[in-house]
Design a protein around this nucleic acid. Sequence first.
DNA 1: CTCAATGTAAAACGAGCGTTGTACTCTTCA
DNA 2: TGAAGAGTACAACGCTCGTTTTACATTGAG
Lengths: 173, 173
Amino acid sequence: MSSLPQEIAASSEQVFDHHGFAASGIDTLAHAAGVSTRTLYKHMGSKADLIAAALEARSARFFDQLAVTDVDGLFAALEQWVQTEGARGCFFLRAAGELSDDFPEALKVVTEYRRRLRTLVGELVNHTDPPHDDLLAEQILVLFEGATSVATYRGVEGITAARAAAASLVHQS
Amino acid sequence: MSSLPQEIAASSEQVFDHHGFAASGIDTLAHAAGVSTRTLYKHMGSKADLIAAALEARSARFFDQLAVTDVDGLFAALEQWVQTEGARGCFFLRAAGELSDDFPEALKVVTEYRRRLRTLVGELVNHTDPPHDDLLAEQILVLFEGATSVATYRGVEGITAARAAAASLVHQS
DNA sequence: CTCAATGTAAAACGAGCGTTGTACTCTTCA
DNA sequence: TGAAGAGTACAACGCTCGTTTTACATTGAG
């Protein structure tokens, strides 16, 4: 049995993902979490804090899925994610677009997510045989982000295409 | 001298792009357009209609920039766009994420934009020498969307990488 | 000149928002 | 037993929002 703050952050992650941040009211978020608004505020402080917590929860959950050993596994994991979670575009890009400077903590989570994703891709590319440089890492990152976006309207086909493109770029000398 | 509705849609496009749809109030939008709220409503009907009009304006403006003859030109045009407009992620993806079913007209514009972008990429890939198939078109689409996303935090470097990747994929048999 | 069209300013409306206060119930454990 | 802690329901607060109303200014054509 996990803690209430974690449950609230987890269910809020889903509500924000499906309806956007501004459009998700506290009452809706509290009801989705199965708690009263009073309890929600006691644990989360404010809506801004709750948004940051939801982004943290998504980041942790997403990188758990991305625990892979090679570039191809990255796209396999993304395909798996989209099949179980659906595709609505990068949660963090959407957050950055919707949230202004009034949400500095949330934006910090977005920045940290991006840094971590870039680092992960860089490591995976570095462990290919033979090792590759920064250009390939940037290209894999583009394919990953592109697959995430394209999947919103072309489904897993976009991820399949990205996966094949990544393989081509990795294996060509 | 262009018409008031066009001016309102154009300036609203900028406000929505920089601050999000829900966070942009009617007063802000009217002030940015240099008109009163009364005039804004007379010409645009409602905020939902204004959002749809702003998306239409962006679509027209963006595809004007994408009047190119080959795949490489596509990424050159995107690089140019980002340098003059900045990068905040795909406007249409963000709209789809923020707007619910209460905005059917806006979502129709998003769908139409995506259909048109996919068609454009398909045509450009088909006119390569030698002509290529649907897989490459999907891959170029992924690179284009990925470059748009990655540019938000890695700048034009992401577009440069995507451009090189596209060239690799096009020229390899 | 006048009238219709088109614009403005400013206030008001009802609704929903994020947030807090109050009063109550239930559990737990010393 | 009884006090403390943690949760609930529910109303209220001040604020902002989208939208409409009212009253007034400007302008160009017949």
